[in-house]
Computed example of a mutant assay.
Amino acid sequence: MNEPRRTAGLRGPRPWATNSEAAGWIAPGVRESALEFHRSMPGYAVTPLVEVPALAGSLGVGSLWVKDESNRFGLPAFKVLGASWAVNRALGPARTFAELAALVADRRITLVTATDGNHGRALAYLARLLGLRSRIYIPAGLPAEPVQAIRDEGADVVSTDLSYDDAVRAAAASVHADDVLIQDTAWPGYEDVPRSIVAGYSTLFAELDEQHPAGIGLVVVPAGVGSLLQSAIEHYRTPGRRTSILAAEPVTAACVTESLAAGHPVTVDTSAPTIMAGLNCGTVSTIAWPAIRNGLDAAVAVTDAETRAAQVLLHSHHVRTGPCGAATLAALQATDLRPSTAVVLVNTER
């Protein structure tokens, strides 16, 4: 395989990277669809796609839309899509959520993960719905509010003084007997569950297809370890699609941008604090990397100040978003990507 042509460097305070050949890459394999399973879950509803015409005009794009994941199954983020499908694949599989609940009834199972917030809460929520236990490992620096939200779902919370990557290792090392690890990043030897999580996220993009059937020119996705980004790339890198993909992440945790620029996975130091706690990840998921390497058009890192300003701007247009979701607008503002067609920002949380 030829090495993709890359451009990379610094623009002001930020690293950035592009791959000029990404649009021509076709994702291999057959993708799973989790949509029907999600539709069977209590409280399922399609999340809104909100047009923000005033911002489209100021940014010089054809139209601007926000796929708003600030309320998914009553939770403040999209993470439950991946966690629920992965739990189903690990403990079932079942065709419906009711069938899965019947399969696990009276089984002594503990769902285990490490989290920087929303994934852990989603897993604890699922454990409660299914009558299972959960144990959630928390890295250093996570604010008290998301930690309490995880406890409120009935989880056993294990607070650590570790980085996110080290908390993941601690959670994996703790698994024994009736524990089941549902981690949203992959490493050699642990790939099946993360693949299911990525497949679960596909529901978000399947909904987008129905909500905006005319086609989308650019989708901006918060990066993290790359699982949601992988789902986006695999969805849009299929024959006949012409959607570009931009990844957004903090300057203090730009593992996707640095890896895309280098052409190989790069681990970055994430000890510096950021308001984008859900994106404070230092290592790209191993299963996400091939899709990112070949199919991601561009990645850019943004500062906390830029993200905070973007969040205020979105709030002024009645879009509820947290810092990770607002990072998408900050990333768009930081680039010269201005398609004359539709741009969608994926607002991952509130």
Rank of each mutant, 00 (worst) to 15 (best):
A186V: 06
F97W: 11
A101H: 13
L142I: 12
D161F: 11
P76C: 08
G189W: 03
L64I: 10
G189M: 05
A83F: 02
K79Y: 07
R108F: 15
A77G: 06
L111H: 05
G74S: 04
A56C: 10
V168S: 00
A54C: 12
V157C: 00
D166M: 13
R107I: 08
A83M: 04
Q148S: 15
W65Q: 10
R169E: 12
T115S: 09
G131S: 03
A114H: 02
A170M: 10
Q183K: 09
A114S: 02
V147P: 12
A105N: 14
V80R: 04
N88D: 06
A124R: 01
L55Y: 06
T110N: 01
D106A: 00
A105T: 14
S163C: 02
T160Y: 05
A98W: 08
D165R: 09
V193E: 08
A173Y: 10
K67C: 01
A167L: 01
R89V: 05
V61W: 10
A149K: 05
A114P: 01
N118M: 01
A177C: 15
A127D: 01
T113L: 01
K67R: 11
T96I: 11
L129K: 12
T113I: 00
D68S: 09
L103G: 00
I150W: 03
F97C: 04
R133A: 12
V66P: 03
P93L: 10
D179A: 07
T110L: 02
D161I: 15
R89H: 10
A83L: 03
N118A: 01
L129M: 12
R169P: 11
V80D: 08
K67M: 02
A127S: 03
L91F: 01
D178A: 12
R95S: 14
A94T: 03
A173E: 13
G60D: 10
E145K: 15
G154R: 02
A177G: 13
G92R: 10
S134T: 00
G131N: 03
D161T: 15
D156R: 14
L111A: 03
A101I: 14
L100F: 05
R95C: 14
L75G: 03
R107V: 09
A167G: 02
R169L: 13
K79C: 04
S163Y: 07
A114I: 00
A124Q: 02
V157F: 00
D179H: 10
F97R: 00
S63Y: 09
D179Q: 07
A172K: 14
V180S: 03
F78V: 02
G117E: 01
D165A: 07
I136T: 08
L132S: 04
S70D: 11
A86M: 06
D165K: 06
L130W: 02
A122F: 05
T110Q: 00
D165Q: 07
V180I: 08
G92A: 08
S63V: 09
A102N: 10
R121W: 11
A56W: 11
A114L: 00
G57D: 15
V87K: 01
L55T: 03
L100S: 04
G154Q: 07
A172S: 14
G82L: 05
P93F: 06
V61H: 10
Q148W: 13
E153N: 03
W187D: 11
